[in-house]
Design a protein around this nucleic acid. Structure first.
Lengths: 151, 151
DNA sequence: GTGCTTGCAAATGCTTTGCACAAAA
DNA sequence: TTTTGTGCAAAGCATTTGCAAGCAC
């Protein structure tokens, strides 16, 4: 593809996730005050690469014993996306995944299973994109390969 | 009528749109009864290649003098997508475009303008996709190149 | 203490549904 | 006439917001 200057999102993002670094550290490094709720939420995502919906995050956090409201989950997820700690993947209207793998990559989306599967970027190339107008900046390239179970 | 999840998309679709053929004909060919409301709705899309949200379609149809409810617009758009006459493009949660260009192609999405711009497919190639599991079928490939105006 | 965070519930925005009426075949 | 489509208003979801009370530093 075409890799110009660009900050957050699909192709360009911060440094790839180091899943061994402490969650609190990673939040601080991005200027996010590590409150108890944020640590709980971020831990569900940053402990290992996952694809979760906001509601799944909420459910997991509560299951883990923390009393966190939906509003806080949504606010925190937005914050983490904004700060480049996780990535948002929209596959359908009202179907949003939060992806803790921020290394550049793409996705299979299995419509039947409702499941997202990573495609490593070094497998895939998108070539021949027209140049951008001078006043635009590239924010990212999302490639979603939609699949379903054969009938 | 039965408005299920959108099947058609990027790579796989019906025959490319012939914008010169009558809208009524095109509906009939796909087994869609051409009622007055459907003709109004379909005309806004099938007259020329456009990217419209459901609400924009509703506004245009009403502006054109027809008394069509939101429900009918939504039902009809789902039907047209299901029958492969138009295509649904999801760029953000709650931001869905209906695209009357069903020839395989991809998109720029300008976050600031909220505008979708076609990228002709012959310019772009996506290579190196892993093979699909045998029991899966490919429904389509969506490539969305996100751009913005701010620095 | 000061200012950012949280929870709750209410509000929002978009989309779907139920049902009586109207139009098509 | 029998089937199919339409309008309206109400219901549904996922997400956001306003504000008082609570934490972090």
């Amino acid at each position: 593809m075409t890799p110009p200057k660009a900050p957050h999102s699909a192709e360009s993002c911060g440094s790839p996730t180091d899943f061994s670094e402490s969650v609190g550290q990673r939040l601080r490094h991005r200027g996010v005050t590590p409150t108890r709720q944020r640590l709980e939420i971020a831990s569900e995502l940053l402990r290992e690469p996952v694809h979760l919906s906001a509601d799944e995050v909420h459910a997991r956090v509560r299951k883990a014993g923390a009393n966190v409201s939906r509003a806080t989950v949504y606010n925190t997820l937005s914050l983490l996306v904004e700060r480049g700690l996780i990535r948002q993947v929209v596959v359908d209207p009202g179907k949003v995944f939060y992806d803790s793998n921020i290394a550049p990559h793409h996705h299979f989306y299995d419509t039947d299973a409702g499941e997202l599967i990573d495609i490593a970027l070094d497998d895939v190339a998108v070539t021949g994109l027209p140049e951008l107008p001078a006043d635009k900046q590239l924010d990212g390239i999302d490639v979603i390969v939609r699949v379903s179970s054969r009938q």
